[in-house]
């Protein structure tokens, strides 16, 4: 664990490979929940609010959502390369502990560059696509459905595109309808608006 203590608090710029290596070690060796949370924090933020490019904030996500996604990644249904080694050996009790921990934290906006001029279009997209129907009017998520308010802009863009262009379509077909035919501009506007919520 020595090398872990040296690295967990280092900024992500320190090197993803090193973090993943240490993460894999701790997760595989069945470290405590606190140790696992520290490792998650290297990319997802110590307080669950991510400062890492294209990496989602977990703070304030519904507990069921976190548990479910960790499960799907562990099983290989949702394939996220940097996560594969980390989730591989998680036990059901870890999924439970991690999801409870992150759902209790307060969500905060990232320091990404926000383009205010995009927000009116983003708001219109939310209404047109009825995002609030499942994500709730406050876009805070419920059960298996994630919080999208205050999420990172770059992560939202990446995720919406992968739902639209299919690589992430199959695990939960529910998103295939709302994103069908969404333009890149609308995705951009939507992401900026959601960040600002």
């Amino acid at each position: 664990m020595t090398f872990l203590r040296l690295k967990w608090w280092q900024p992500p710029a320190f090197g993803l490979a090193a973090i993943l290596l240490s993460a894999t070690a701790v997760f595989a060796q069945g470290g405590t929940l606190a140790e696992k949370i520290q490792l998650c924090g290297t990319c997802h933020g110590e307080d669950g609010n991510s400062k890492t490019e294209k990496t989602p904030s977990l703070a304030g996500q519904p507990a069921f959502y976190i548990l479910n996604q960790l499960f799907l990644m562990r099983e290989g249904v949702r394939k996220v390369e940097p996560m594969a080694a980390i989730v591989k050996d998680l036990k059901d009790s870890d999924l439970d502990g991690l999801s409870k921990h992150y759902s209790a934290l307060a969500p905060k906006r990232s320091d990404e560059k926000y383009d205010r001029s995009l927000s009116p279009r983003g708001l219109a997209v939310v209404a047109e696509r009825r995002c609030g129907s499942c994500h709730l009017p406050g876009l805070v998520g419920q059960q298996q459905i994630p919080r999208i308010a205050k999420q990172r802009i770059d992560y939202l863009i990446q995720t919406l595109k992968s739902f639209r262009d299919n690589p992430r379509g199959g695990a939960d077909t529910a998103m295939s309808a709302p994103v069908a035919g969404m333009s890149d501009d609308d995705i951009q506007a939507l992401a900026h608006y959601l960040w600002s919520r």
């Binding site: 069921f64 479910n68 439970d96 609030g132 129907s133 009017p137 059960q143 459905i145």
Partner: peptide, 10 residues
């Protein structure tokens, strides 16, 4: 706000 029910993975 009606939405499909989740399936618990555990």
């Amino acid at each position: 706000n009606l939405k499909p029910h989740p399936t618990p993975p555990i």
